[in-house]
Design a protein around this nucleic acid. Sequence first.
DNA 1: TTGATTGCAAAGCATTTGCATGCTA
DNA 2: TAGCATGCAAATGCTTTGCAATCAA
Lengths: 182, 182
Amino acid sequence: MLFDNISISMVNKKDEFSKEREIFLEHIQRAGLRKTAQRNLILDIFLRTEEHLTSEDLYWLVHKEDPSVGNTTVYRTLKLLTEAGLAREVRFGDNKTYYEHHYNHEHHDHMICTECGQVIEFFSQEIENLQEQVAFNFGFSLSHHSLRMWGVCGECQKKVTEPQVVPSGAQPKIKVRSVVGS
Amino acid sequence: MLFDNISISMVNKKDEFSKEREIFLEHIQRAGLRKTAQRNLILDIFLRTEEHLTSEDLYWLVHKEDPSVGNTTVYRTLKLLTEAGLAREVRFGDNKTYYEHHYNHEHHDHMICTECGQVIEFFSQEIENLQEQVAFNFGFSLSHHSLRMWGVCGECQKKVTEPQVVPSGAQPKIKVRSVVGS
DNA sequence: TTGATTGCAAAGCATTTGCATGCTA
DNA sequence: TAGCATGCAAATGCTTTGCAATCAA
């Protein structure tokens, strides 16, 4: 299993994300849209960034490589990527829309540390099953769901026990990092 | 159990929500704030409305009884109610903040019909337990969570089988009704 | 009388759209 | 060449705040 992943990533080093690019092109063509340099650049940067990104986050990453690209284009391209099934919108409660990889990334839920903003992705088949069962009991046909759990991660729990100075004006703002759980 | 509820509600008919009012007053006084006619009215209308409400929804209900009350006051009073533990903020994915009763309303999750906007409240101790277990496995100390499931409710599934004319411009906007599940 | 409260208007902030110009097919 | 794409600026929608007048304690 582990070896499979390694060999695949080594063999396909040059063609990394070729499947994703193909999917995007297909979507573009099916919808009668056009292939552009901006869309290619935005797709590439999105694909090689594993973190949860807002449209603005991605805009600045793109901006570093090509300052002529506007944020509207990044915004619209993220919508395109979502339509194409490559990206997925997520919200963590700070009133912003984040995007995460969707293609080849199995469904998962999120656990968010309210201290450091760390986001842990996890999956529990048992929870999924119970959700389906609850829905069935209500005659509901489920299409999707969102489970988010907030709390304090292990690292931050340790920090709290130590004496610390909190600078005034320092707010526990949600910053998002991504860690893939089991 | 059932009889208990009935007798309680009959005995306390006149004092309905007296406990909630008491809690609000306590919070007001503890925080050095003031009792006002507007706050009383807003609290009353909030308490006797079981639906999930946005600040604007509540504003219009209040407006019907007293047009002189401003929406800012409703907005700020809802924040107060939330601080006092009487209300709770919820989001259903349409980018609005809804408020629901918190006091004496046990924790529950939401199932939202994407056709008619109906919201079913449900609770599953098994799901709760599994969440705690997952969190424990990651060394996480949970404070709260949000589980929302979208799908099509039983009624709307029946409707889909019948031929229907969809008026152009008719969008499946999320309207929120509340039904308490088991 | 003091200082919290109110309601209006305006500011914030993320998101979305209109439009003239540019560029793909 | 037709019409989609782009980037700027402005509009939108919900939320939040500043401020002068009002009102509870």
